[in-house]
Amino acid sequence: MPDHKPKKHLLVALVENKPGVLNRVASLFRRRNFNVDSLTVGRTHKPHLSRMTIAVDATRGDAFKIHMNLLKLINVVDVANVSNEPHVSRDLALIKVRANDAESRNGLTLICERYPARIVDIGPEVAIVEITAQEDQVEALINELKPIGILELVRTGVVAMGRGVRILDSDYEPVRPITATSEAKSFEVYSV
C-alpha cells in the first residue's frame, strides 16, 4: 500500500433504521482498528433510513478500506467519501464560558461577532455560546475562548453533504409487514 499522509476523511453512510445498526458500525471500527474522530447519526426524511457522518483521520488507502468494510455491512445501504468531492460540512458546539465580569462579557461578544456564533444563554456567572461552522472554525473559536475560561463543552461531531446534484439516497422501501406494534418498536424504542 503506497503510504500517503493521513488526512481527514468524511464518510457518509446511509443505513437502515433498525435496531443495532449503530452498534454494527461502531463494532466494525473497533474490530478493524480504525480510529474515529467523530460519528454522528440521525434520521433522514425517510423513516426507514438513517444517515451517519463518520470523520476519520486516515491515509487514502485506509479510508478506502473503511469505505469497503462499511459497505460489507448488510444494513449499510450506501457509502460516500465526501472528502473526495466538493462538500459542505458542519460541526455544532455549545460552549459554557465564564461571564462574571465586564471584561469577560465584552470579550465574549467581540469574539462571537467574528464567528458564526451566538450567545444563546447568559446569566450573572456564565454564558453559553453556540457555534455551527466548519470544524476548523469551531476549533479556532474554542481556542479564542480558552483564555476567558471554558467551563463545559459539547460538540455534535461533523455532519456533511456533497455539494450540487450528488445525491446520496436510496429508493429502497422496506418490505417487511409493519404492524402497529412493530412500527413503534423499530422507530421509537430501537432507533439507531
Binding site: P19, G20, R31, T181, S182, K185
Partner: peptide
C-alpha cells in the same frame, strides 16, 4: 448473543416481531 456474535457473523438477527 447478537452482541457476542456481531463481529464473527456475516450478519445476525434478534427477532423482536413474529411477523418478521
Amino acid at each position: 448473543v447478537t452482541g457476542v456474535t456481531l463481529p464473527i457473523t456475516k450478519h445476525n438477527y434478534l427477532v423482536m416481531d413474529i411477523h418478521e
